[in-house]
Write a protein that binds this DNA or RNA. Structure first.
Lengths: 136, 136
DNA sequence: CTTGACCTTCCCATGAGGGGAAGGTCCACA
DNA sequence: TGTGGACCTTCCCCTCATGGGAAGGTCAAG
């Protein structure tokens, strides 16, 4: 049960020290305990929580959503339906972004395919950007 | 050839007045002409350029890349190969982001599918976030 | 002449931190 | 005992691409 200072806690959790302080500052994390000298201290449970946050971030959750997830996680009496709803909402959000990006990438590739790419100046890509719909 | 003030130019181009000023401030656009009273003025060619920017933004290009594209567009002597390279680079960037988001969405949906979603507190989603790999 | 719609510049905020300065602390080694 | 270096603290500014809004000038219509 040795508590860690922020550096080792960062290395153990995969969340940078900078971020940990930031999360504390914005209230995502409860204020860490301190040594007499003012160093933050993290117990194993805190590191576990940090890893939870790191994973949630890796799934693209916003800090606000992570706050909800953490709350659900800390309150073990929560209903799993709530968690599922958050997860599916996040998946929907990601699917929406994916669709947007895909449309962009498709348009770009369509335009690029029509561009000979030589040294001559006529370029359907610029024309597409300048004037008509991408399908002009 | 009536020049427009920033509001009409914004409406005609689809770029907000706020953004137009911003683009000028960061050097993406050359300083607009001014009336005696200091109002910015935009000719048809300027509005055309703004629409070019709006379209490029819609394809996800960063401001820095749009600066390159604008340069290529303004310099009609450019090689279309340069434009094509920018477009394909952007498409690659988007495809990379899409892959990342897709992995996240897939993980979320996998986890959610294993979650019964009832009122009981046991939830594979939280467990996935807390501890193991998503596939645990 | 006033009203209201427009324009100007200016600063502050976002989200999610990173970079780095200035200064305090801790530990090991000579 | 001291000192060096690695660590920690707070602080403020930077990002990126804007949006919001304040304070104040301008313009055209009624």
């Amino acid at each position: 049960m040795t508590a860690l200072t922020i550096g080792p806690a960062a290395r153990a959790s995969g969340v940078s020290a900078k971020r940990i302080r930031h999360y504390e500052a914005i209230g995502l994390l409860r204020p860490a305990g301190r040594t007499e000298a003012g160093y933050r201290l993290y117990a194993a449970a805190d590191v576990h929580e940090l890893r939870f946050i790191a994973r949630a971030r890796a799934l693209g959750f916003s800090i606000a959503k992570i706050a909800e997830l953490l709350d659900l996680w800390r309150n073990r009496s929560r209903a799993s339906a709530d968690v599922k709803a958050l997860a599916l909402e996040q998946a929907d959000l990601l699917r929406g972004r994916i669709a947007d990006l895909q449309a962009m990438a498709d348009t770009l590739e369509t335009l690029a395919a029509r561009c000979e790419g030589g040294a001559r100046p006529d370029c359907p890509i610029l024309e597409g950007l300048a004037g008509g719909s991408p399908g002009d």
